[in-house]
């Protein structure tokens, strides 16, 4: 019932493409960071977006999530992403430490 080979295209080529893309993205990240193209806050945003793209590529292709049924894709990703997003509430207090901290 779960003959994986039959479910999706098993071409080797796509994995090489993804690998290449990941290496190039890493290269871009390193160059951006080393050349300090942006102010730190923007740098963080850019790096995080690039990292998310890389993560998405790994999850979708290497971890085959692209080829799983939609319910699994949705449930797993929604749970993890939601959990991680709500932790951003912490940062309101991290900023407070800067403002109210000891002189």
């Amino acid at each position: 019932m779960h003959n994986i080979a039959a479910i999706h295209d098993e071409s080797k080529a796509q994995y090489y493409w993804v690998w290449g893309a990941l290496l190039i993205l890493t290269g871009i990240e390193v160059v951006l960071a080393y050349e300090q193209f942006f102010t730190p806050v923007h740098m963080l945003e850019v790096l995080m977006v690039l990292s998310l793209v890389k993560a998405a590529l790994i999850i979708a292709y290497f971890m085959h999530l692209k080829f799983e049924i939609p319910l699994m894709r949705f449930m797993l990703m929604a749970a993890i992403v939601a959990c991680l997003c709500i932790m951003c509430i912490f940062f309101a207090d991290a900023v407070r430490v800067v403002k109210l901290g000891l002189p």
Partner: peptide, 20 residues
């Protein structure tokens, strides 16, 4: 998962997040 802050109303947490 989104209510844990109500344990921290008096903890010096940012008062804005307390509303949420």
């Amino acid at each position: 998962f989104v209510v844990w802050g109500h344990h921290m109303f008096m903890s010096g947490m940012s008062p804005y997040t307390a509303f949420a």
